[in-house]
Design a protein around this nucleic acid. Structure first.
Length: 410
RNA sequence: GCGAGUGUCGCCAAGCGGUUAAGGCCCCGGAUUGUGGUUCCGGUAUUCGUGGGUUCGAUCCCCAUCACUCGCCCCA
């Protein structure tokens, strides 16, 4: 038997209804907030991710599905911000009046060991806003995320925010942090030693307990807690917080929050759930003011986030499924096919007994299908050009013409 | 890349060394060819993830392997 590959899943049955529910909510909320959908290809030049996501990240170093095709190195997208930025640049969208706002959804690919909330092919939904420097864009993007999560009925989520500062204050901070850590460096884990060289900020969210304990030391904490970010960045962050307060959006400032991708600056945030197991981040995002330039465009500020669809699905319990309106019971396949088509054209979700054995079986199937009405199209009805409609909940039934039926409903 | 657990029908499972591998759900057929999910009867695993080994005998013990699940890491 050929089975689905490790870390991939078929989505069907009950599950697909959830996806439709979430996708419908997504369209509704993002369209209302004037985001436009952007669909980018599933594979891109490998270089896009190497430069965009950052070559110090695990994603680029060990998790990409890369293949050679006619001398080109291609990669299945591990995330979609780089692709959206590429499209933004390629189509000269800097000429559009800002903000330029996109949302997207689709499969992403990362070669990792699967576990709860983590697959090799998984789906993200995200938004990106280009061209706005002001913290209003950060607030808008976070507020839209919250609105969407509320729409699909998710509660008990925690929003964490932080500011990484801009390039200037960041490099300042980086040097101070390195200086504070240096005397203890040999105690940290191997990963942290590597991070120390490539991106020391990422040492802050190391999950290793020993590393955490060294980070907790006063000399290092003093640096972490110090307001290293410049006045401008600080103002930016303060404004964002005041907007969130105004919108009544609760948040915790987590100074240890560092997003794993290299492109973030200033605002970073994460939305977590306590009921998800160890992969508990539902949404992650932040500002990336230099990515457009890094990828060859003109310098354009931007902010966005991505959510993990599968993680959302794991949190959704109740949602409405559309019920079958009519189930046709008949032994005349021709008449049944015709009637089914008419009912479907009129907008009724309709199924029929394709085996057409006997009325008993037909009713049994009608009931199991969960339909509201059984429509009986027997010899008697056909000869009178009528139908018998039975409400399967109340058991009332009557024999009428189709015209009478539609008049009654309308 | 590292660590742990689990593999018996489509699903949930019992059996844990001894002749035909329980049971339940689902599905299918019949009792019941113009009216109901109930009930009753019947049907569905030459085989216990795969390959070796131990044994007179292995679903059961051992080894390997594969798959899945969970955790670390990382992230959404």
């Amino acid at each position: 038997m050929i089975t689905a590959q490790k870390g991939t899943k078929d989505i069907y049955g009950e599950e697909i209804n959830k996806w439709h529910f979430v996708e419908n909510a997504m369209r509704k909320i993002f369209e209302k907030a004037n985001y436009q959908e952007l669909r980018t290809p599933i594979f891109e030049a490998t270089e896009l991710f190497a430069r965009g996501v950052g070559d110090s990240t695990d994603i680029v170093n060990k998790e990409m599905y890369t293949f050679e095709q006619k001398g080109r190195s291609l990669t299945l997208r591990p995330e979609n911000t780089a692709g959206v930025v590429r499209a933004y640049i390629e189509h000269g969208m800097h000429r559009l009046s800002p903000p330029v706002k996109f949302y997207y959804t689709g499969p992403m690919f990362r070669y990792e060991r699967p576990q709860a909330g983590r697959q090799r092919q998984f789906h993200q939904l995200g938004v990106e806003v280009f061209g706005i420097d002001a913290p209003s864009a950060d607030a808008e993007v976070i507020a839209t995320a919250i609105t969407f999560l509320n729409e699909i009925g998710l509660k008990d989520l925690e929003l964490e925010i932080n500011s990484l500062g801009c390039e200037k204050c960041r490099s300042n901070f980086r040097e101070k942090l390195k200086a504070a850590i240096l005397p203890r460096l040999d105690k940290f884990c191997d990963d942290c030693k590597m991070r120390y060289e490539k991106n020391p900020l990422r040492m802050l969210d190391c999950k290793n307990l020993e590393c955490q304990s060294y980070l907790a030391e006063e000399s290092i904490q003093n640096v972490i807690k110090s307001e290293f970010i410049c006045t401008e960045c600080q103002e930016h962050f303060e404004k964002l917080k005041s907007y969130l307060d105004e919108l009544n959006i609760k948040y915790n400032v987590n100074k240890l929050l560092v997003r794993g991708l290299d492109y973030y600056n200033r605002t970073v945030f994460e939305i977590k759930s306590n009921s998800l197991g160890s992969q508990n981040a539902v949404c992650g995002g932040g500002r990336y003011d230099s990515l457009v330039e890094t990828l060859g465009g003109i310098k354009t500020p931007a902010v966005g986030w991505a959510m993990g669809m599968e993680r959302l699905m794991a949190l959704i319990s109740d949602f409405k499924v559309s019920r079958l309106d009519a189930y046709i019971i008949s032994q005349s396949t021709k008449e049944t096919l015709k009637l089914a088509q008419i009912l479907r054209q009129k907008g009724y979700k309709t199924e029929f007994d394709m085996q057409g054995k006997n009325f008993s079986k037909g009713f049994e199937k009608a009931l199991k299908s969960g339909a509201k009405y059984a429509i009986i199209l027997g010899e008697d009805e056909i000869s009178q050009n009528k139908i018998t409609i039975k409400n399967l909940d109340t058991k009332e039934q009557q024999t009428i013409t189709l015209e009478e039926l539609f008049n009654k409903i309308e």
